[in-house]
Design a protein around this nucleic acid. Structure first.
Lengths: 232, 232
DNA sequence: TTACTAATAGTCATTTTGACCATAATTTGA
DNA sequence: TCAAATTATGGTCAAAATGACTATTAGTAA
């Protein structure tokens, strides 16, 4: 590789990255996992992760690693936090920095590569036993998601561009884990004036088709300036 | 030192810790800073920070470093996040993990030590130019504080054990940056049934003495179980 | 044409909010 | 001793938000 010649291939050998990608599909919340193709946990399913290059910011490292292992790119990865327990990694001392994102699985085809021999979306309710402290990272990230989804309009990132109000409600129900009143949920959302109604309607359903809406970040940003507060 | 003989003195040389301590004193918000007594920023004021030992968790490292530099110990340090821009540290690649805490300055006497030649509380409004990316860390932490103080009862950590409602209100005003209605603030707090009234009253004031209250974590924990939600 | 399903709209009592106003308890100084 | 000043504390009231429902509508399926 040319890049390898120009920039000496040097890694930060005691700091790694792990990515936690949430997706919503067929009514259930999923996370993206990879099967390690090499290294000390070869054959095991785990969160996509890898080493940070010396000449690369941690944000860039997260994007690069995620793309290399799963093919998923061009998404907004937000840092969760660092995990630095003494015994989290078996062979040496490694601190890992976890990243977090919400995506629409149908928008990305998975292409395992680099150190990953496979990649797939796993239902959050049937995640296998994870190596290292990945369970801890997952739990922390899920709690973070639950909190964040109620205070910021990020749930839309998990839905298709155009969605029905019921789809949005079901997303919230599956993340928060409790049922919501349809009418009240609807009223609350509509009163925010945050959603853009589409001219289209839902298709191929065996009942009255619902109106489709989309989320417009520009509108949200404008509302924010007028001290609007997203709360669900 | 005996410890140095038993455990080889080995540090994680590319990962550091920085601590952001907020205190509230004489009506203003302060942060704890130290003057570097050695190293590449000798003589400069900065956040208390240092290297992580190989045989020490990052949480432990944060407590140890803070105590060694400032004498402040036995406080709850929460991780903020890692900062890992390429050029954040001038001489080599260093990722830092920032920690965050709220304390009552009057409860701690400052004892500069280790790599710090001095330590003091600085008004958040007159923080000098900071080295590295400490300004970025401070800004992030302050934003975090603003958010957190509205959603969790942590403001009490900045006040004396017993405080008046007005003192609490002024604390909130100084963190959030906007005035609050006294009567409404009072009503809201009291309706939470979170504060414990004290039998004592405020002393040495040249007007009617206010009732003193204290915060009881046990009560908060009990309320939490009954789906209580702290919101201001 | 009739059941079924979900969409959408509306009701209503209760609670919460925001913007005030009123009175009470102290201290200070004239 | 009394008035002014200052803050504490409690109350009012209309408007807005919430939670628990009910009603109606539009479309599918059989």
């Amino acid at each position: 590789m040319k890049a390898a010649l120009q920039i000496p291939y040097k890694i930060m050998d005691s700091v790694s990255i792990d990515c936690l990608l949430f997706g919503f599909n067929q009514g259930t919340l999923k996370i993206l996992m990879v099967k390690h193709g090499e290294g000390i946990s070869k054959g095991k399913w785990a969160l996509p992760g890898g080493w940070i290059n010396y000449h690369e910011s941690i944000d860039d490292a997260a994007s690069r690693i995620l793309k290399a292992l799963t093919g998923v790119s061009n998404i907004y990865l937000e840092q969760l936090r660092a995990f630095g327990d003494l015994d989290r990694y078996p062979t040496k001392r490694v601190i890992t920095i976890a990243y977090f994102a919400l995506v629409k699985p149908e928008n990305y085809s998975l292409h395992p590569g680099f150190t990953a021999s496979d990649a797939k979306w796993v239902d959050i309710k049937s995640v296998p036993k994870l190596p290292y402290d990945h369970k801890k990272i997952l739990d922390f990230g899920f709690a973070h998601l639950k909190h964040k989804v109620r205070h910021e309009p990020i749930g839309f990132n998990l839905l298709p561009k155009k969605f029905t109000l019921l789809a949005l409600q079901e997303l919230y129900e599956s993340i928060l884990g409790n049922p919501l009143d349809k009418s009240n949920f609807r009223r609350k959302l509509m009163n925010m004036n945050l959603l853009v109604p589409s001219k289209e309607k839902q298709k191929d359903v065996s009942h009255r088709a619902a109106a489709l809406y989309s989320f417009d970040k520009k509108i949200y940003d404008r509302l924010l300036k007028e001290e609007f507060n997203f709360e669900l």
